[in-house]
Each structure stands twice: as C-alpha cells, then as structure tokens.
C-alpha cells in the first residue's frame, strides 16, 4: 500500500465513493416519494445529450459534455411532465416511455455518427471508466501535499467532490422542509411551504448528481446508488435521520468493496483479468440490499399492509 496505491487506486476509489454518496443522498428522498426511477431515467437520458454535445463541438471536453447532459435531463423532465398531463397516465409510465426512447435515440446517434476515433461508446456510457481515472504524477502519499502533483489530479475528482459537498449542504439546510413535504405534502403546503419547488429542486439535485457521476462512473452505478444504499438503510432503522447516515455508509462501503473486488477478486479466483469496477460496485450494493432483506432489524414491513 504505497506509491502504486496512491497512483493507481486512490483516485478511482475516492471518485467512486463520492459519486456513490452524491447519488445515495437524494435517493433516500426519491424512494420515499415513490420516484426512485427518476435516477434511472436521468442516467439514461444523459446519453443522447452527451452524443449531441460531441457532434456539435467535436470534442470530449467536460464542459460541453456536462451542458449536453444537463440539457437532455431538462428536456426529459419537461417531456415526462407533458406526457403525464396530456396522456393522463401515471408518472412511472411517462418516465419509462421518455427515458427508454431517449436512451435508444442516443445509441442510434452514437452508432450512426463517426465517433469511432474517440472514447465514446455504449460500453463507456454504461460502465464509465473508473479504472482509468488514475493519478499519473503521484509518487506516493507525499504527493497529497505536493501542489504540482495535485494539479494533475483527474478533473473528475474535484468535480464530483464539489457536487457531493453541494448536495450534502443543501440537504442539511433544507432538511426540515424536505422531510415534511416528503412525508405529508398537503400539510406542508398549508404551512406555506413551496412544495412543488421543493419537489423540483430534489429532482434537479438528483440530476446534477447523476450527470456528475455518469461522467466518471457510468450509468449502471448511478442507477444502483440511487436505490440500493437508501433501500438497504431503510431496513436498518425507523428514523429518517439515521437512514440517511446508514445510506451514506453503505454507499461508501459498496464503492470501496466493489473497486477492490473488481481489481483483485478475479485474481484470487485464479483468473487473469480484472472485471469492471462500476459493475462490481453496483453488484456489491445489490448484495448488501439482499443481505439486509434477510437479516436487517426492520425488514418486517416490506410488503406488509399497514394496520
């Protein structure tokens, strides 16, 4: 655990942990609001946004990518609302139509356009490239104090750190109205709280988390982190405050464990090739949820009608 670790593994692990936490925090509220699929939807619709941004600018620089992703999320949210209202169908169905159609459109665009020369493909969109986010200039732990080495950190790290910090601060400041309007929207409205705005802000924060995480770790991990850690945490406690804390822990744990297992697990099993870290992180989070379903202290209420 020395120079090699800092150079090759430290930054991917940190990015994975921060991406997982940034998605898990809003995921707690999305699940309680029966909107868990929003994370899924956003992570799919960013694909056409990114492809269009690439076709327009011809570069893979992060700013156009992020703008493309943000634009696509916005269009998707508007489309979902429109379809839901005009078609008078339930939000889940409207979401399903929009995100599958947009993702499929993104795949078509990707295959029809000349993007073969660059690192932009469907696999990348799903899996991200966590393993490649290494810190070239690091020579050991001392590099953490070396400004020159720090300057060469992969840009995904400060970006996802900023997003994770932003989401944490917003959630802490607006905790009370967020909890109140999630539990009882009608009552919250009679207190004069802007319940629609709160709902939109939550979706917007989730979109920011999904876009930032998608860039680094792909959409599989985003979908998994919105749902698995909060759902696992729900089974551990009966208080929202504790649930959010548990979910942060589960998110971080699945990122670390998933990364290590992806890198070394196959070697331990005698295989020569490592597997995708993003895929393994998502798998670990799913296994944690499965374990919690079997053994967690508050699992009894799942599917049980309330009295």
């Amino acid at each position: 655990m020395g120079a090699d670790f800092v150079q090759l593994s430290l930054t991917p692990i940190l990015i994975g942990v921060l991406a997982a936490i940034a998605c898990a925090l809003p995921g707690n509220f999305l699940i309680l609001r029966r909107q868990a699929l929003i994370g899924d939807a956003i992570s799919h619709v960013v694909l056409p946004g990114i492809v269009v941004a690439f076709l327009v600018t011809g570069s893979l620089a992060s700013l156009p990518m992020l703008l493309g992703a943000a634009g696509a999320s916005l269009i998707a949210v508007l489309l979902i609302e429109t379809i839901r209202r005009l078609g008078r169908i339930e939000p889940g169905a409207a979401m399903g139509v929009v995100f599958t159609a947009m993702f499929a459109g993104g795949v078509l665009l990707l295959e029809q356009s000349d993007t073969s020369g660059v690192h932009l493909d469907v696999e990348h969109a799903l899996m991200g490239n966590l393993e490649s986010l290494i810190w070239f200039d690091a020579t050991g732990w001392s590099s953490l104090l070396d400004p020159v080495a720090l300057a060469s950190l992969p840009p995904e790290l400060p970006r996802i750190a900023l997003v994770a910090a932003l989401i944490t601060v917003l959630m802490l400041v607006f905790w009370r109205p967020l909890k109140l309007s999630t539990f009882d929207e009608g009552f919250a409205a009679t207190l004069g709280l802007p319940v629609r705005l709160i709902g939109l802000a939550l979706v917007a924060a989730s979109a920011v988390a999904a876009v930032a995480a998608f860039d680094a770790v792909g959409s599989i991990i985003v979908i998994a982190m919105f749902i698995c850690p909060p759902a696992t945490a729900r089974l551990m406690t009966e208080r929202l405050e504790h649930q959010v804390a548990w979910s942060t822990g589960f998110a971080a744990l699945s990122a670390v464990l998933g990364y290590v297992l992806a890198g070394y697990g196959p070697l331990w099993l005698g295989s020569a090739h490592a597997v995708s870290a993003a895929g393994m992180i998502a798998t670990v989070s799913g296994l944690m949820l499965a374990a919690a379903c079997l053994a967690a202290p508050h699992r009894r209420r799942i599917g049980q009608p309330s009295a």
Binding site: L32, K179, T182, F183, D184, G186, F187, T190, R234, T237, E238, R239, L240, H242, Q243, R301, S306
Partner: peptide, 15 residues
C-alpha cells in the same frame, strides 16, 4: 389542517 389519514405513507421512517 388535518389531512385524511390514508393520504400519507405510515411506513415513513419517523417517530
């Protein structure tokens, strides 16, 4: 205001 009891999710994690 006291909403209808059935309008909220009583499985919500709170005391």
């Amino acid at each position: 205001y006291v909403p209808q009891r059935a309008s909220v999710d009583w499985d919500f994690p709170t005391r």
